[in-house]
C-alpha cells in the first residue's frame, strides 16, 4: 500500500486519536462485540461492545490494540511478530478463524456487515479474553514427533542435499506456523478430543515426507489408528478455509491415507474397507452399491445398522430382497470403467 507523505505524517501524528485518525476515503463505523472472560474471577463469559471508526487499512490487530489502549487496559490477547509468522494473534471473528495481524478489518465488514464479533479460537479453553489454553494443541503436535528423526554423523563431510522434486513433495506443509486456526476450526476435534486434528496431521505429513527422516513408519502407524488418526477426519474442509498460510491440511490428510495403503500399513478395518470397497462396487456397476459397501465394511458389525435399515426399507429407499440387483443402476460403457480401474489402480488393501 503506497501512501502520500502527507498521509504518513498524519497517521504518525494522530495514531491514537479517534477524531483525528487519518480519514481515508472509506472509514466506516463498526460495532465491535468482544468476548470477555477471566477464568480466575468470572463464572461466565460476557460480551462488551465498542463503536469504532475503522479506516480501510486497519487490521484486526489494530482494533485489538485500540480496544486495549483507548478503552480498557485489562483487555487481553496474544500478539508478537505482527508479520503473520508467529501465529500468536490467531482469534475468531464472527466464527471465521483469522490471524489478527493479517486480516483487514473492512474485508470482514464486507462479509459480515457492520457488527464484528471477536472471540477466542476456542471458547471452552478461554483463560482470559482472547487468550486460550493451547495445551491440547501442543500435546497433539508433540505426539506425531514433529522433528526429523535421523542418525546423523556428528562430523559430516558433505551436506545432505535435497532435490527440488523432493522439496516439492512437502506441498508447503513446512509453512505451518502452529497458530491453531485449523485445529480450533475442526468440528471433528470439537466432538472427539482424541483426534489428532489437522495441524498435527500436517506436521506428521511434513516429517514423514522428509527424505532424511527415519520415523515415517511409526508416524504412519500412529496416524492410521482409529479414533485418533486420519480416518476421523470428517472431510468438511474447514481447515482449508481456516489456514492463514494456505497450506490445505486436508490435502496432506489424503496423502497420509494414500501412504498408509502404499506402504502396507493400513490394516483391514471398517474405515479402510470402506475406502477400498468403492473399487469393488464401481467395478461391478460403475455406481457405488450403497448396501454392499455398508455390509462389506462392517462385516458382522452390520447388525448395528438394522434399525436404520428397517426405516429405509419402510420408506422404500432400499430393497433387501433384490438379490439379483435388478434395481441397482449400471453405468453405460461399464467396460471402459473396468479397464480404467485395471490399468490405473496401484494400491491394495
Amino acid at each position: 500500500m503506497i501512501h502520500t507523505e502527507e498521509e504518513v505524517i498524519k497517521e504518525v501524528l494522530h495514531l491514537n486519536e479517534e477524531e483525528h485518525r487519518p480519514d481515508f476515503a472509506h472509514t466506516r463505523k463498526v460495532k465491535v462485540k468482544v468476548f470477555r472472560f477471566n477464568v480466575e474471577t468470572d463464572y461466565l463469559p460476557y460480551y462488551k461492545t465498542y463503536e469504532m471508526k475503522v479506516s480501510k487499512d486497519e487490521l484486526i490487530l489494530d482494533l485489538l490494540n485500540r480496544i486495549k489502549w483507548e478503552h480498557d487496559g485489562s483487555f487481553s490477547y496474544r500478539r508478537s511478530c505482527r508479520h503473520g509468522i508467529c501465529g500468536a494473534c490467531a482469534i475468531k471473528v464472527n466464527g471465521k478463524a483469522v490471524l489478527a495481524c493479517k486480516e483487514n478489518a473492512q474485508d470482514l465488514v464486507k462479509i459480515f456487515g457492520n457488527e464484528l464479533v471477536f472471540e477466542p479460537q476456542s471458547q471452552k479453553r478461554a483463560v482470559k479474553d482472547m487468550i486460550i489454553d493451547k495445551s491440547d494443541f501442543w500435546e497433539k503436535h508433540a505426539a506425531v514427533k514433529p522433528y526429523v528423526e535421523a542418525t546423523v554423523d556428528p562430523r559430516p563431510t558433505k551436506e545432505t542435499l535435497m532435490t527440488p522434486t523432493k522439496a516439492e513433495q512437502f506441498l508447503e506443509s513446512d509453512y505451518c506456523i502452529q497458530c491453531g486456526a485449523c485445529h480450533y476450526s475442526c468440528p471433528a476435534l470439537e466432538v472427539n478430543e482424541d483426534y489428532l486434528g489437522p495441524a498435527a496431521l500436517v506436521s506428521a505429513y511434513r516429517f514423514t515426507i522428509d527424505p532424511r527422516d527415519e520415523a515415517s513408519e511409526e508416524r504412519l502407524e500412529l496416524t492410521s489408528q482409529m479414533g485418533i488418526g486420519v480416518w476421523d477426519c470428517v472431510k468438511c474442509n474447514e481447515c482449508v478455509e481456516a489456514c492463514p498460510k494456505e497450506i490445505n491440511p486436508i490435502e496432506k490428510i489424503t496423502k497420509l491415507h494414500n501412504m498408509q495403503f502404499e506402504q502396507g500399513i493400513a490394516k483391514r478395518n471398517v474405515a479402510t474397507k470402506h475406502a477400498e470397497g468403492f473399487v469393488r462396487s464401481i467395478k461391478k456397476y460403475g455406481y457405488l452399491d450403497e448396501q454392499d459397501i455398508v455390509m462389506y465394511s462392517e462385516g458382522l458389525g452390520v447388525v448395528k445398522h438394522m434399525s436404520e435399515a428397517i426405516k429405509m426399507i419402510k420408506a422404500g429407499k432400499i430393497h433387501p430382497f433384490d438379490v439379483m440387483k435388478k434395481k441397482m443402476p449400471r453405468s453405460k460403457n461399464l467396460d471402459e470403467i473396468q479397464k480404467l480401474i485395471k490399468i490405473t489402480q496401484t494400491n491394495k488393501l
Binding site: 494414500n258 495403503f261 464401481i282 457405488l288 460403457n333 490405473t344
Partner: peptide, 19 residues
C-alpha cells in the same frame, strides 16, 4: 450422463488418488 461412474465420494481418493 448415463455413462458416468461414481465420483468416489471423497473416500476412493484416500485409497487410490490417481484412480
Amino acid at each position: 450422463l448415463d455413462e458416468a461412474s461414481c465420483c468416489g465420494a471423497s473416500h476412493l481418493q484416500d485409497f487410490d488418488e490417481m484412480l
